[in-house]
Design a protein around this nucleic acid. Structure first.
Length: 296
DNA sequence: CTCCAGGTTGCGT
DNA sequence: ACGCAACATGGA
């Protein structure tokens, strides 16, 4: 399949983001292409996404699957890729705003065409947020890998293993003691199992959060969940529910990035960040994602 | 050894 | 509403 992308879309910049962690277990990058297991309903397909031969296109190729892909499966895979790369977002208003912003101007210039890469699966987005709380990123990737390789399912293709993120039902059935050997803390284990139970029983669904059509309302529902605070809620609102106004303002990486770009001798306060971000209204998630990008 | 890391909870003012 | 210890462990 061929997918057209806007002029404000850089496959190279998006791939640089996806290449940031050597220990990432949810995809591989081989020969300038992204290769990833994509779940469609109860089936799974290993899909290759690469730069198309025509300008401003992506080429999507199904490498193998749990069955022969139907035309509906192909459509769902295209939808997944479109969501993941935020292809349908019009970034012109963001770039217009950023051009006059001393903090954003340098990063949008350096990383022009970068999209907020999504985590379409709500359970994965929530777990990744919880796993990443208050630990360094390399260790977070290690924990995620252990979790996925212990409780997820995999498909092999061309000598490599591709993982499907664990199902909430599987995690909901665990005890805290099951996760401690992975070096999850007791609290992380409780949070992961708790969220899994909410999703397994159907009281927490991506569709229900999307139906709210209101970032603040969705944030309120997420924060009500034990283990989900303001940072994790906004991280999920940004990476999964795709609200461009989501803003994990407490994020220490964001603080470091702002300090770095402005050359401050110490980290900015939350109050200072509120001042600096006043003109970002509606685009806080993109501003954050671009600022994060300058950290690696 | 110390300090920090993509925070959150729960309890105390 | 706001402050703060506790949580726990890898990496620099």
């Amino acid at each position: 399949m061929i997918l057209s992308v806007p002029t404000e879309f850089s496959f190279v910049e998006n791939m640089k983001y996806l290449s940031r962690a050597a220990n990432e277990c949810m995809h591989q990058i081989i020969d300038d292409a992204l290769i990833k297991l994509i779940p469609v309903g109860t089936e799974s397909f290993i899909v290759e996404i690469r730069q198309g031969t025509e300008e401003q296109t992506l080429q999507i190729r199904i490498l193998c699957g749990s069955k022969e892909p139907s035309s509906d499966d192909q459509l769902d895979i295209t939808r997944y890729v479109t969501d993941m790369f935020d292809v349908n977002r019009n970034l012109q208003p963001f770039y217009t705003m950023a051009a006059g912003d001393p903090l954003l101007n340098p990063v949008v210039t350096s990383f022009y065409g970068l999209r907020t890469i999504g985590i379409p699966d709500l359970f994965e987005a929530l777990c990744w947020g919880i796993i990443g709380q208050q630990i360094n990123l390399p260790f977070a990737y290690t924990l995620k890998r252990r979790f996925v390789e212990c409780y997820g399912q995999s498909m092999r293709w061309d000598g490599d293993t591709y993982w499907k993120f664990p199902e909430p039902e599987r995690i909901a059935a665990l005890q805290v003691a099951d996760l401690l050997p992975l070096q999850m803390t007791t609290k992380k284990s409780e949070y992961l199992i708790g969220v899994a139970k909410l999703m397994a029983e159907g009281s927490l669904t991506k569709q229900r959060l999307l139906d709210l059509q209101d970032c603040k309302a969705a944030e309120k529902q997420l924060i009500a969940i034990r283990g989900i605070g303001p940072w994790t809620a906004n991280y999920v609102l940004m990476r999964c529910l795709r609200y461009t106004s989501a803003f994990p303002i407490q994020d220490v990486g964001l603080h470091n990035a702002i300090q770095h770009v402005l050359g401050l001798d110490k980290k900015p306060t939350i109050e200072r960040i509120k001042e600096l971000s006043a003109s970002w209204a509606g685009w806080e998630a993109y501003a954050t994602f671009y600022l994060w990008r300058c950290l690696y």
